[in-house]
Design a binder for these strands. Structure first.
Lengths: 194, 194
DNA sequence: CTTCTAATTAGATATGTATCTATGTTTAGA
DNA sequence: TCTAAACATAGATACATATCTAATTAGAAG
């Protein structure tokens, strides 16, 4: 589920999580009504009704036609039903927080393997090692050239085996840094698709 | 739909209308988690997580097991799904507000402008005035001829300004009554299409 | 053109609740 | 028995928003 879909779902719930808006949907389900009629039925002032109708319209749950000054609203039951059907499928729920789980997992890995800013050990698992290496690469600035000694010095702040780490950072399948003529620099990463 | 069902529906939406609670559902969909883990994942304090979990539990959307001091929560996906399926069917929506349906608006207008059988004032709004006039016309029998004095007498039971009311009742665009040679009678109304 | 009604928009207020800190409770381990 | 850890509960605060009044727009009717 994309971030947008998540926000849509949240939006949907927020709009429906109001007593008077739910009542409006119920009233409009039985036919179109003017703002004035709705205000009378719900014992609210017209501006309040306008406010609620505007929120329902954000989701296209209601439609409107103007007859002179009078605006008649009706329920788009189809929209309500399809929206509802799309929303809470188990698959959707299961993937509700791909993104959270994503970087949360990385945070967890970092938390597990770092003691403060010091690396307790280098994870054996490639995935976890990738997370650690990405973090280490972040300790270097973009558009700066580092001599090998400087690279080692920075890496050694976090782990004694700077040589291994340095080698991994420039390895082909990691590609977080590059080297040429004994000079190192950080490489911009291609963004993952969202 | 009963009042209780309506409140349940509202409750459901209110509980789900929160970003972090939605995220919790998503996280728990992938397996059980402790409160502490959830707090870390969502970058919130433990009491906040407890609060959200309590709200989710109101709807039985999550379950909990205790292992020592650690409380593991999980998603009851079945509960979520069945609840969702029950909720927004078109029939439910259509019957959301049985009590307010139909000519409730007209009843409301009558209630607002009548003090018992006495008209407090004549509404300015054409629509509301129409409702009042229809009610007044109902005070006259069909197939009976009334002299102007009789019409006035009946109207004055409900409002002092019988002359204005009488005039309106026979006006072209109202047409609830007719007059000829100083004699009045009630006119049958063509039913509006429903 | 002026006036009145219906609706929307803007701005103010009040209520609900998400979140935090502090405190209490339970369990595990020294 | 005492301490520490993991949660829950209580109380305080801050933010979101439902609702109102006042002002504005647009249409209808005199």
């Amino acid at each position: 589920m994309s971030q947008e879909e998540f926000q849509s779902l949240l939006h949907f719930f927020k709009v429906l999580a109001d007593e008077n808006r739910l009542k409006l949907l119920g009233i409009l389900a039985s036919g179109e009504r003017s703002v004035e009629e709705l205000a009378t039925l719900l014992k609210l002032k017209a501006p309040t009704i306008s406010h609620h109708l505007a929120r329902l319209k954000e989701l296209n749950l209601v439609g409107m036609r103007a007859d002179g000054n009078t605006h008649y609203y009706w329920l788009d039951a189809e929209a309500l039903h399809t929206t509802n059907k799309l929303l809470l499928t188990p698959q959707k729920m299961a993937s509700l927080v791909d993104d959270v789980r994503g970087d949360a997992w990385e945070r967890k890995v970092l938390k597990d393997f770092f003691e403060g800013t010091r690396l307790k050990e280098i994870p054996a698992s490639p995935k976890k090692r990738g997370v650690i290496l990405k973090w280490l690469a972040n300790q270097f600035e973009y558009n700066v050239l580092y001599k090998e000694a400087q690279v080692n010095e920075i890496l050694q702040r976090h782990h004694e085996d700077s040589a291994s780490l340095r080698r991994e950072l420039i390895s082909a399948n990691v590609g977080l840094m590059q080297r040429e003529n004994g000079v190192y620099w950080r490489v911009a990463q291609v963004q993952d698709a969202v």
